[in-house]
Design a protein around this nucleic acid. Structure first.
Length: 876
RNA sequence: GGGCGGUUAGCUCAGUGGGAGAGCGCUUCCUUGACACGGAAGAGGUCAUAAGUUCAAUCCUUAUACCGCCCACCA
């Protein structure tokens, strides 16, 4: 634990590649990521959103997973029982798509292979590719407790899924029924409402005439889906629509076949203003129509099958049977035209339902499926939000969460894919349903209730989001009463992208409250979506996708992390990702690398870690940087607590680079500051590196170990405590004055083109010996022939104001004129304000006082500038 | 159709009811005991537009325009 200084010298140039791999291996080897539940300490738990088994690291992980790593590392250093729980999702539809494609190349189908062989193959595939993303995460420096990694299809998690299903079924919250569902023909499965995208597309609105059965004109309806005409069971008009009142109750013939007659009915759901004001009713293929059908007791024949082809299995489809839905559409339109039944057609832009996963156009179909009743589950989830037990950052996501839950509909949970949790439901020969956690239990129930143990299992699997919905407790061993479950449920925050608030977050809240009695996390942090620099979505097809692994290769993981964190704005819904930010971050790492090299090379050597000289010996510069360190610790911690990663990163970079390096480190080169510099510099660097560690874990570790330090790794070093950093506001203000003076002198020097480096001695007024340090500091920073000035004054400010650069008089005068003009403007503004009785009467007292002070200051400065100008004239 | 966010320097974005900021880019200068992957100085903005509230508006309110996100069963 002694202050061992690394004897090896750091290389002059920071090379992340060499050190990141080595450091990560050591962390893992020594088990630093691992944590055991400890009720004695505050828990800090983050459940990692399990990436898909098919997944690869992408920039989205940068904005959602980096913050999780940051927060876990931060809280570990705070001394919390901090753990980041990793996992992997079986991603049913995505994985099955990959597998089927792979099998197709071998001429294989799922059915030909059979379920057991297929699942074996799927497992083998999952085992082979499931670890890829973990290695990528490690490359990014992510440190979850790998030993606790869970897969949604693990035995334990699968048992939990079955238990949840069975319990919900027995509580009447899961049921089986024939409903209109979203059928994805390409994926050959149903998908939930939340997995359907609405995409605006150009389409055609056809006006189709349905001739009257009595030989009359009949009625014209507008439709975008002529192929479903075949399954029409009625024409609906608004009950108050005068145009059609006479037709209500009559019958019209379904074109183009004209083999069936259907009634004209009245329903309030019809919008008189749209199209012709008459709508065809096709209950089996449209949600609105389904509702109308229910209200009027209409039949609901299907005319489209699971392959999205026209079928005559339930109703006559004439020559169209067997055609693909889109082919049937054009054929029917053509036949209508020929028959003179196409009254009109117009271009029409509308939203088409598309499967989020496969992109295929969703076919609403009537189908026997499993559903989860949502209203009873949504109520407590809404209450949790409204009562503040669940909070969103940024808050606006809470309002969309609320709106979604208020209008939630039952969740179709069964899928027709094979890769997933097979629904624990069995059917007796007479069709009775038996739901049980195991087959044995199911047989026992069947024997008891149905007089026989002959059972056939439901072939469907559960929606992937069903198993991830119970993730926060299933991974902790539920339903077993584990120590992990006791200590680590609920977790502290869920961090994710906005795209899965409904799919995942809301369901975790509902199921977490239902099964565990409390919300799974009090905070939900929603990261912005990452776009390219032009604001376009990153996609392979656009060719604008950036592989984070490439960025790590070029800039290092730390630079990637800093680069993306720095672009995160808490209220922003997007990040326009600029790779240049990673390059800057690499330069930043190089900068602090060299700052540490400088410290290590100090002739006097560095003392034991975190030991400061006695207070009286501290210089102005020391006091300033320590005060700034104190403030940075407070600010940085506060920003992290508020998930404001952009500003947090900004603040630590600013401190490190623009204050510690540009000013303090330079100040230590001034001889008057040499006595205390080693310990103060070591102290400041040590603290700043610890602040930096959560966001740039590798370089902070390497440099911290190179400096005097306590402990084996920065990962478990304590978080900087502002109370241990001495603060001296007066000294800090004095140093700020020195900075302002230096900046003024540098400006004068640059504008006068003075490049020579004459270091002048400067006198200090009698009795002001303690100003010697200020003068020396100014000279050190701004040496460039400072000679003029009165070198007097009663205050440091006046003394410093006397510094000037010996310059070309004309240039100096021009500068003074410019300065005087600016000051006159400020004086006028302040005077006008103060002369306004309304201002003095109504503005806050401190504002008025401050305004007077400012005015005073401006007047003093102006007077000085004017007298300087006058002096110049006299001089001539 | 409903809801929400954004509009500040060439670019990406902070910020505040009272003296417009950062980084990058640009111009100029500088190898000074860590760093040229560096240091210094500078130019550049009527804070989208209009009205209102206020002693005072880039900031609060309303409207408009443009950009974007989410939700939605008008066929």
């Amino acid at each position: 634990m002694s202050g061992t200084t690394n004897s090896e010298e750091l290389a002059p140039v920071y090379d992340p590649k060499a050190l990141e791999r080595r450091i990560y291996a050591r962390w893992e080897e020594r088990g630093y990521f691992h944590e055991e539940p400890d009720p004695a300490r505050p828990a800090y738990v983050i459940c990692m959103p399990p990436p898909n088994v098919t997944g690869r690291a992408h920039l989205g992980h940068g904005s959602t997973y980096t913050p999780m790593d940051v927060m876990t590392r931060y809280h570990r250093m705070l001394g919390d029982n901090a753990v980041w729980l990793p996992g992997l999702d079986h991603a049913a539809i995505a994985t099955e798509a990959v597998l089927l494609k792979e099998m197709a190349r071998e001429g294989l189908t799922r059915e030909a292979l059979g379920r057991p062989a297929y699942l074996e193959r799927a497992w083998a595939w999952a085992r082979t590719y499931g670890g890829t993303i973990d290695a990528q995460f490690a490359t990014l420096g992510f440190g979850p407790d790998w030993a606790r990694k869970r897969f949604t299809m693990d035995d334990g998690l699968s048992a939990a899924v079955r238990k949840v299903f069975v319990q919900l079924y027995r509580e009447g919250l899961i049921y089986r029924g024939k409903r209109l569902v979203n059928w994805d023909p390409k994926g050959q499965t149903t998908v939930s409402d939340a997995e359907v995208d609405h995409v605006e597309r150009e389409a055609t609105l056809w006006h189709v005439r349905y001739p009257g059965q009595d030989g009359g004109e009949g009625i014209v309806v507008a439709t975008t889906r002529p192929e479903t005409i075949l399954a029409d069971v009625a024409i609906a008009v608004h009950p108050q629509d005068e145009r059609y009142r006479a037709l209500i109750g009559t019958k019209v013939l379904v074109p183009p076949l004209r083999e069936r007659a259907i009634p004209v009915i009245a329903d309030e759901a019809v919008d008189r203003g749209f199209g012709t004001g008459a709508v065809k009713v096709t209950p089996a293929h449209d949600a609105t129509d389904y509702e109308i059908g229910l209200r009027h007791g209409l039949p609901a024949p299907s005319v489209i099958d699971l392959q999205a082809r026209i079928t005559d299995a339930e109703i006559g489809a004439g020559p169209y049977a067997g055609l693909d839905r889109f082919e049937a559409r054009s054929r029917i339109v053509e036949d209508l035209r020929v028959a003179g039944l196409l009254a009109a057609q117009e271009a029409y832009r509308h939203a088409v339902s598309v499967s989020e996963r496969t992109g295929d156009v969703i076919e609403p179909l009537l189908s026997e499926q499993w559903f989860c009743r949502m209203t009873p589950l949504a109520k407590p989830a809404l209450d949790a939000y409204r009562e503040g037990r669940l909070r969103f950052v940024p808050e606006r996501h809470g309002r969309t969460y609320e709106a979604w839950l208020e209008n939630i509909r039952d969740w179709n949970v069964s899928r027709q894919v094979w890769w997933g949790h097979q629904i624990p439901a069995w059917y007796t020969p007479d069709g009775s349903i038996v739901v049980a956690e195991t087959e044995e239990e199911a047989r026992a129930i069947a024997l008891r209730d149905h007089g026989g143990a002959e059972l056939v299992r439901d072939t469907d699997t559960l929606d992937t989001w069903f198993s991830s919905g119970i993730w926060p407790f299933s991974i902790l061993g539920w339903p077993q009463h584990s120590t992990e479950l006791a200590c680590w449920y609920p977790s502290q925050v869920l961090m994710t992208g906005g795209d899965i608030i409904f799919l995942w977050v809301a369901r975790m809240v509902m199921l977490g409250i239902h099964f565990m009695g409390e919300v799974p996390f009090p905070d939900v942090f929603v990261a912005p979506t990452v776009f390219d620099a032009q604001g376009r979505k990153m996609s392979k097809s656009l060719g604008n996708a950036i592989d984070p692994m490439d960025l790590v290769e070029r800039y290092g993981a730390d630079a990637f992390r800093i680069g993306i964190l720095r672009q995160m704005r808490i209220e922003s819904q997007e990040i326009r990702f600029h790779e240049s930010r990673c390059d800057e971050a690499r330069k930043f790492a190089n900068k602090i690398w060299n700052a540490v090299r400088y410290a290590l090379a100090l002739a006097e050597g560095l003392p034991a870690p975190l030991v400061l000289p006695e207070n009286a010996r501290l210089t102005i510069a020391d006091r300033w940087i320590l005060t700034r360190l104190h403030d940075t610790i407070v600010e940085f911690s506060r920003l992290l607590d508020g998930y404001d990663f952009g500003n947090a990163t900004e603040s630590i970079v600013r401190f490190f680079w623009y204050e510690l390096c540009d000013w303090y480190l330079e100040a230590t080169k001034e001889p008057g500051n040499a006595a205390t510099r080693a310990s103060v510099l070591s102290f400041a660097l040590n603290n700043a590196l610890r602040l930096l560690h959560p966001i740039a874990p590798f370089v902070s570790e390497e440099l911290w170990l190179a400096l005097p330090h306590d402990g084996a790794t920065i990962m478990t070093a304590t978080w900087p405590d502002p109370l241990e950093v001495p603060v001296d506001r007066d000294a800090a203000a004095l140093f700020a004055m020195v900075q302002a003076t230096v900046e003024r002198l540098r400006n004068e020097r640059a504008e006068n083109g003075i490049a020579d480096r004459v270091r002048a001695a400067i006198g200090v007024p009698a009795g002001k010996a303690d100003w010697r340090g200020l003068a020396d500091l100014v000279l050190h920073f701004a040496w460039g022939n400072p000679a003029q000035g009165d070198r007097s004054g009663d205050t440091p400010a006046e003394f410093l104001a006397g510094f000037a650069v010996r310059a070309d008089p004309a240039a100096h005068a021009a500068r003074l004129h410019k300065e005087a003009a600016r000051l006159r403007g400020e004086v006028a503004r302040a005077e006008k304000n103060l002369a306004n009785p309304q201002f003095v009467a109504k503005a806050a007292e401190d504002v008025v006082a401050k305004e007077r002070e400012k005015l005073q200051g401006y007047r003093t400065e102006l007077a000085r500038a004017e007298s300087a100008l006058a002096a110049m004239k006299e001089h001539r």
